[in-house]
């Protein structure tokens, strides 16, 4: 159970931290889904070529980081709308990965890794969990204890004031986008390496769930953990429910969304009742 919940939640949490950094910088990266794909594909390519986990993770982090920062820059320079360019990038990246896949490996289907000297799923999960912990603690430290974190939040809170003080909110936002790409890349790399294969559409909506986690977590860093945990438990429960009840299996597919929605509702209801009490 712990395995299942972590294996499902960690990729979402990583991407969500990335998305959260862009969100507080004042400009949200909605291309997480596509960036996870790119990370997953890069990890496959490097792993297949070098058999090195270190290189695979590094490359998978760098490539999406570059793409993310690149499209953010393009959008800023040409005054585009980051939301639409994000949608476009989400369309573009899976298409490009598939084209590259056909060019390099003559297939846009499942690409398997040689499994002879691969780590077991459990070991890999332990590694990615440690990485995620480090990422989380670092992000927490930077955001709340350092000047860089202050800058990041300031860029999001008040752009004008930031500019007047002589800072460059664009540079801050670009950094946030690069970081979000990096984290999505790690998330994608984990997906590929734990499956021992790259599968088309491997991100399967995890990028979107990561965005949802930001709001579900009340736009707080610690909230992301709860949100990712909530998604994972809901998913786990839904997967289990398929076997437990004598009902058509496909009835349970939407349950993670529904449970999360209800959770959000219940939480808000309690909060509003509490507030009602406080008021005279």
């Amino acid at each position: 159970m712990t395995y299942s919940i972590l294996a499902y939640g960690i990729p979402i949490l990583l991407a969500a931290i990335g998305g959260y950094l862009t969100d507080i910088s004042g400009k949200m990266n909605i291309a997480l889904e596509g960036l996870i794909m790119v990370g997953a594909f890069t990890a496959y390519g490097v792993m297949a070529a070098t058999s090195s986990y270190l290189l695979a993770f590094t490359a998978a982090a760098l490539v999406p980081a570059l793409i993310s920062a690149g499209y953010e820059t393009l959008t800023t320079v040409y005054h585009g709308n980051i939301f639409v360019t994000g949608l476009a990038v989400n369309l573009l990246l899976p298409g490009l990965t598939a084209l590259l896949s056909v060019r390099i490996y003559a297939s846009s289907g499942v690409l398997s890794l040689q499994t002879d000297h691969m780590l077991s799923s459990v070991t890999l999960l332990q590694i990615i969990t440690v990485i995620t912990l480090i990422v989380f603690v670092t992000a927490y430290g930077i955001l709340h204890q350092t000047k860089a974190g202050l800058l990041l939040r300031a860029a999001g809170l008040n752009r004008r004031a930031f500019e007047i003080r002589g800072g460059s909110p664009d540079a801050v936002q670009r950094t946030a986008f690069a970081l979000s790409g990096l984290l999505c890349g790690l998330s994608g790399a984990y997906l590929t390496l734990s499956l021992h294969a790259f599968v088309p559409n491997i991100s399967s909506g995890k990028g979107w769930l990561a965005l949802a986690a930001i709001y579900l977590g009340d736009r707080r860093l610690s909230g992301l953990v709860y949100a990712a945990l909530f998604f994972s438990v809901a998913e786990y429960a839904a997967n289990r429910a398929q076997g437990l009840f004598d009902m058509p299996a496909s009835l349970f597919l939407g349950f993670p969304f529904l449970i999360t929605f209800l959770g959000l509702f219940v939480k808000a209801m309690f909060r509003s009742r509490r507030n009602d009490h406080k008021k005279p």
């Binding site: 294969a197 998913e235 786990y236 398929q242």
Partner: peptide, 17 residues
């Protein structure tokens, strides 16, 4: 049922269960 033809992580999870 996975719900689609691509979610390998979910396929893996259903199999584990």
């Amino acid at each position: 049922v996975v719900g689609n033809w691509y979610d390998a992580a979910k396929g893996s999870e259903l199999a584990r269960a």
